[in-house]
């Protein structure tokens, strides 16, 4: 049995390459067992060295399997990284190809298909209170808007600011203009041609809800983005 095992590992080039020491020891132990077998009364020693030789052969076999596995794992790891990269790129591409999906999203955000065309509303919560600055929470909506305009290069937009009826009329008009302009500036900063954007303020005019309740006033404080049709034709200004 020990002879057979040793023969097997000795003739296996993978085992010899990855576990040469164990193969040598298997051979040495076996030679010892063979020499001892010629002496009378040495049966126990013979079987001992045969046992050791057998073990060395088995250890050599395991160590060889281990290093083959490690080599294979290193190759597979490279393959895995390559596939992961390919998947990321493919996903990105598919998002870009899903302009239709994006259009649907914008339409659903816009909510109203009015006589003025497609209208998207940015709520008061996207602005600092009483200020023209956009909050960071508006980023997502703004990016979607930019992507939509990039995928639909002939469309143009009109950005209209509105306020509630509290406070000074002129100040409200100014705030509504400033908010509309802020949105326009962000779009321009993100690469949309300024020729495709116009901004105007309407102050307290054209409320969408009554100004008596806080809830109604909040609805009236808004910026609306009016989209042109696919040919770039915008509805008449208010």
């Amino acid at each position: 049995m020990a002879h057979k095992s040793f023969q097997a590992v000795k003739e296996n080039s993978d085992v010899l390459r990855s576990a040469p020491k164990d193969v040598i020891r298997a051979g040495e132990s076996l030679a010892r067992a063979d020499r001892l077998s010629s002496y009378w009364g040495s049966t126990d020693d013979v079987s001992h060295y045969a046992y050791l030789s057998q073990r060395y052969s088995e250890i050599a076999g395991q160590n060889s399997a281990l290093s083959l596995n490690q080599e294979r794992a290193a190759k597979l790891e490279l393959e895995r990284q390559r596939l992961q990269l390919a998947l990321r790129e493919a996903k990105l591409l598919s998002v870009q190809e899903q302009s239709n999906w994006l259009e649907e999203q914008i339409v659903s955000l816009a909510t109203s298909e009015t006589e003025r065309g497609l209208v998207m509303t940015l709520g008061d919560v996207l602005f600092d209170a009483g200020q023209a600055n956009l909050k960071a929470s508006a980023n997502r909506t703004v990016l979607k808007l930019v992507q939509f305009l990039q995928l639909n290069p002939r469309r143009v937009v009109r950005i209209e600011g509105y306020t509630d009826s509290r406070g000074d009329k002129l100040e409200n008009l100014e705030l509504s203009r400033a908010r509309a302009q802020t949105v326009a500036d962000v779009l321009i900063d993100l690469g949309i041609d300024s020729k495709r954007i116009e901004a105007q303020g309407h102050g307290e005019s054209f409320p969408v809800a009554e100004n008596a309740s806080a809830r109604g006033r909040a609805q009236n404080r808004r910026v609306e983005i009016v989209f042109s049709d696919a040919q770039g034709r915008l509805g008449a200004t208010r």
């Binding site: 073990r55 088995e58 250890i59 395991q62 160590n63 399997a65 281990l66 596995n69």
Partner: peptide, 9 residues
Amino acid sequence: RLAEARVLT
């Protein structure tokens, strides 16, 4: 040592 090699493999 064989036990160790088996576990590692």
